[in-house]
Computed example of a mutant assay.
Amino acid sequence: MKRLALLFISALLFAGSAAAAVTPPQQLVQSTSNQVLERLKAESEAIKAKPNMLYGMVDEIVLPHFDFERIAKWVLGKYRRKASKQQQADFTKEFRMLLVRTYATALNEYTDQAIDYLPLREGEASGDVVVRTEIQQPGAFPIPINYNLYLKGDAWKVYDVSIDGVSLVANYRTTFSREIRQKGLDALIKRLTKKNDEVR
C-alpha cells in the first residue's frame, strides 16, 4: 500500500498547468514537479488546518493531464462492451473521483523524497512515450515509476502509470473485474459513489 501511495504522489508531482504550445513530455515532468512542490510548501499551514484543500488541488492541477476516458475504458476491459452509455459515464466519473481521493491521501503523507528523471527513450515522434523516474528511498533501492503518455491534440496525456513494473490500469482492472463478476457493474459504481460522497 505504501508503494501504491508513492505512485500517486509521483503522479501528482508530474502534473502542471497546460502550456499554449506542446511541452515535450520529459520537460513537462521535470518543470512542473517543482511547481507543485512549491505550492505545497507555500500552502502547508493552510493544508494542515484544512486537509480537504488537497482534493481541490489534485482536481485542479493533476487530473486534467490524465485521459480518463481512455483509462476507464481499459480498466473496465471486456465489461465495457456490455455496459450502457450511462454506466460508462457513471463509472468514469466515480473512478476519476476515486483517484482524487487516493492522490490527496498520498500527498498528505509525502515526505519530500527526491525524484530522479531518467533519459527519455525514443518514441516522442510517434506520439507515444514512456517517461521514466525513480523515487529515492533513504537506505533502500530507488523505486522506478514510469508514465505512459500519448499526444492527444496539442497536449500530452497520461494513460497509465506503473510502479516497479505494476501498471495502475492493470491493478484496478484486476480488482474491479473480480467485483463486477461477483456483484455486477452497478454495484461497483454504487460502492464508489458512496465512498466519494464522503468528500464531495
Rank of each mutant, 00 (worst) to 15 (best):
N52V: 13
V169D: 00
L12K: 03
M53Q: 14
K73N: 06
K152I: 07
T102N: 13
Q30Y: 10
P64C: 01
A89T: 09
A83R: 09
S126E: 15
S17K: 12
D197S: 15
G184T: 02
M97N: 13
F91R: 04
Y117W: 11
R81N: 10
G123I: 02
P138M: 04
Q30A: 11
P24C: 06
K50L: 13
L40S: 03
G165T: 09
S177F: 00
G184R: 00
L40T: 03
G184A: 03
M53L: 15
R191H: 05
E122M: 02
L168W: 02
L185R: 12
E43T: 10
W74M: 12
L149P: 09
V100M: 10
I143A: 01
L99F: 15
L120Y: 10
F91Q: 04
L120M: 14
A140D: 09
N196I: 12
K73E: 08
R80P: 06
L99T: 11
V62H: 02
E60G: 01
M1C: 12
L6E: 05
L185A: 11
K195N: 13
Y79R: 12
W156M: 05
P119H: 12
Q86N: 13
A106C: 05
P24K: 08
E94R: 05
A114W: 08
Y79S: 08
L63V: 03
L37P: 03
I47D: 07
R173F: 04
F14S: 01
N108E: 14
T174M: 06
D90E: 04
A5T: 09
S31W: 07
P119I: 08
P138L: 04
Q87L: 09
L168H: 01
S33D: 10
L37W: 06
D116W: 10
E179R: 15
E122L: 01
N146K: 08
I180M: 11
I145D: 03
T111C: 10
D164Q: 06
E109Q: 15
L120P: 09
E94D: 07
G77V: 02
P24G: 08
D67Y: 05
M57V: 06
G16Y: 01
V75H: 07
M53K: 13
I163G: 07
S31R: 12
R96S: 09
A72K: 03
E198Q: 15
Y103T: 11
Y147A: 05
P144D: 02
L99V: 14
F14C: 02
K190F: 07
I9L: 00
T105R: 15
A89R: 11
V130N: 09
S10T: 14
L37C: 05
K85G: 05
V161H: 08
N148M: 04
Y55I: 03
S44N: 14
E94G: 07
I115F: 12
Y159W: 12
Y79C: 06
G139K: 02
T105F: 15
F95D: 08
E60M: 03
